[in-house]
Design a protein around this nucleic acid. Structure first.
Lengths: 223, 223
DNA sequence: TTTAAATTGTAACAAATGTTACAATTTATT
DNA sequence: AATAAATTGTAACATTTGTTACAATTTAAA
């Protein structure tokens, strides 16, 4: 277990000795679970820190009529619902169930809080995790706020050009996959890509995109 | 200043004496700013905790072509960019400028970290703030993921019914305001509302909405 | 009360995207 | 090389939303 924990985002930078000392002073349990087991309901109080050690979990969003919507999977050594342990409404945002057999480390909230106070490094790690979630969600919102498919393509390409600094963007995803990522239908995406090609904005090949008219691409996001 | 801080989310629950002791041990500055002053650029390293004491700030999202998009305002005694002080990319997500004269408390990140380690209460407060942001954004994403106006209306009403438990939902916002909240045009919203009325789902009055067919409303979110 | 302002209802038309179905092409597999 | 599978191109049509403009109605202000 310790080896897994030492490589987890929460305990990164902690020495084996420190980890040992910490776990002798802090109440904790290891909970084993079986494939298919329901681990938490939506709206249930979180109340404890959970860190997946082995196996795979799955979180299901459920809409008002009871249908399952999006499914998110979780692998070791990630924390479960890290951003929902604290905050005004400390409740599970998803149904949590086990996809395989496995086990997780469980620390009650008050013990977890004590641990954060004890070890500054773990505290910063945890704050990094939660901040990272917030930042990821913030970026996702920016993307979701884009309304047209053209805007999404433009934003996607601009983001990738920032890294490479190049007008040649590598694409390691199919149009089918990209349409899924964008939340639009595949024919609509293809149609829009072809339209942008006709307008001389870009050239879309199987594994890369050439941006031929950067100004026009920016204008799409301008308005 | 202490009075403002004692009522801030970050120092809530701290006694005046504790606060005093804390500030004697922790490096901090008060920075005054003038109306119109630019306080931070997008992409700039955050590096310090900032808590607005007086005045009003404004954060501007800026798109790739340099136009200002959404504007968010900030009032005392809120923290500035609380969820961006830690995390993998600790950079400002917006342009930050002053809308009025004012002042803010500034604590360098390493001193801020030391303070969190020192005072468990402040640490928990800060984690609550960041977690709250993440949770707020998470809810916003759920809403932004809804595609049709009908879905947005249905979600909006279901959320409000959860509180009141009643099929009569108070509406303290005009359709114009609601269309803005939904990110759709007003005529489109009105048209959709009237359509839902024709379908017998609801009755929309100036200050309240009666849900007449809950099942149909749920089905809209079902699929 | 009268006037002005804001809000809501309505309509014709344009633009964007979804739906469905199938063909063409490319890539992977045997 | 031949076949199967996946991906991409294409098209006709439906649906949803935006755009614009103006009328009707309600609320606020003079």
């Amino acid at each position: 277990m310790y080896q897994i924990l030492l490589n987890s985002p929460l305990f990164r930078g902690i020495s084996p000795e420190e980890l040992n000392g910490l776990f002798q002073r802090i109440n904790h349990q290891v909970r084993r679970f079986r494939s298919g087991e329901m681990l938490a309901q939506v709206g249930e109080d979180v109340g404890k820190a959970m860190l997946l050690l082995e196996g795979r979990l799955q979180g299901e969003m459920v809409d008002f009529s009871g249908n399952s919507l999006k499914i998110e999977e979780l692998d070791p050594p990630q924390m479960v619902a890290a951003a929902f342990l604290y905050g005004p409404k400390s409740i599970f945002p998803v149904y949590l169930s086990a996809k395989t057999d496995g086990e997780m480390l469980v620390i009650q909230k008050k013990d977890f809080t004590a641990m954060l106070s004890m070890e500054s490094r773990v505290m910063v790690n945890y704050i990094n995790i939660v901040s990272g979630k917030a930042q990821f969600l913030s970026g996702k919102i920016t993307f979701l706020s884009l309304k047209t498919i053209k805007e999404k393509i433009a934003y996607y390409l601009m983001q990738r050009m920032k890294f490479s600094g190049n007008k040649m963007v590598a694409i390691e995803i199919t149009q089918t996959g990209l349409s899924d990522l964008f939340g639009v239908t595949r024919p609509s995406l293809t149609r829009t890509i072809l339209e942008m090609e006709k307008q001389g904005i870009l050239t879309w090949s199987r594994d890369h995109v050439a941006v031929n008219d950067l100004k026009k691409l920016q204008q799409i996001l301008g308005k």
